[in-house]
């Protein structure tokens, strides 16, 4: 399964996402520069965390107009898998691939610490290796993660099962105290209507190696691989373990 990690000027979690896919998941991955419209045969695209374009104007507001986002929009419209992490989530909101917007954290601070997440929808390509109610421990690192949506949008997200993760306690309870940033309905991650695009504020790539303190982030990457293999087997009409058609590993370009 081939992954592409988009690199905007100001992205700073691109290498982490690259490593999570290559070392944590053992799959091929390449970087795609924001000025390119070629997603390099991606089966899944990751929009990584960071401060694209310095967060000028609004987080993700300028990245939305970069050439690569035209390609990402077409990719998503065709059913391609898109995972937006932190600033990547903010970019997906600005682009309109996901509904809602981000406000400053309610305590006005940059928060960088592990949080507990309750899986709310375990049937998505991104979560199929988890179960509903499972608690993942994954770090957040943001100043604008206070998710906001109007009442109608929120009701739609709730009704359609599009809230993927909620901030919770270690035991899974969702309370105002377990909400680190003031997000409406304790939302940490949402999906689009089709379920092929998700955005999440926590950083799964920072929890993809035991040396980093948690491997819970790998559930998301493994889910994607699991989904991809099932789709491929369904297409081939056989339940074989044939090798995934790997494209050659590309070396990261210099930034």
């Amino acid at each position: 399964m081939k992954f592409s990690v988009v690199v905007f000027p100001g992205s700073n979690c691109d290498d982490d996402a690259f490593q999570a896919v290559r070392s944590g998941l053992g799959q091929p991955v390449s970087f795609v520069w924001h000025g390119s419209e070629d997603l390099e045969n991606a089966d899944a695209v990751i929009l990584p965390g960071g401060f694209s374009y310095g967060d000028y104007l609004r987080t993700g507001a300028i990245a939305r107009f970069s050439p690569v986002m035209s390609a990402v929009k077409r990719f998503a419209a065709g059913g391609g898998l898109v995972l937006g992490i932190c600033n990547g989530f903010q970019i997906l909101l600005e682009t309109g691939l996901l509904p809602g917007a981000m406000l400053c954290n309610s305590n006005l601070r940059f928060i960088c610490r592990p949080v507990h997440l309750r899986v709310e929808n375990a049937s998505l390509p991104f979560t199929r290796s988890t179960r509903v109610g499972q608690v993942l421990t994954i770090p957040i690192a943001h100043a604008e993660g206070n998710y906001f949506a109007d009442e109608r949008t929120l009701a739609e997200l709730q009704r359609q099962g599009r809230i993927v993760f909620r901030y919770c306690a270690l035991g899974g309870e969702v309370t105002p105290e377990t909400n680190p940033n003031g997000s409406i309905d304790s939302i940490a991650g949402i999906a689009n209507e089709e379920g092929n695009v998700i955005g999440m504020m926590p950083h799964p790539e920072r929890a993809s190696d035991a040396r980093l303190g948690s491997t819970d982030g790998l559930y998301i990457f493994r889910s994607l691989l699991d989904w991809f293999e099932q789709m491929r087997n369904a297409e081939c009409g056989v339940r074989s373990q044939a090798a995934v058609p790997h494209s050659a590993l590309r070396t990261p370009h210099s930034k």
Binding site: L103, C104, N105, S106, N107, L108, N146, F148, D150, G182
Partner: peptide
């Protein structure tokens, strides 16, 4: 400016 219906944490702090 933020809409009236949206909480403005910075404004509240000021």
């Amino acid at each position: 400016a933020l809409k009236r219906t949206v909480l403005d944490p910075q404004g509240k702090t000021i």
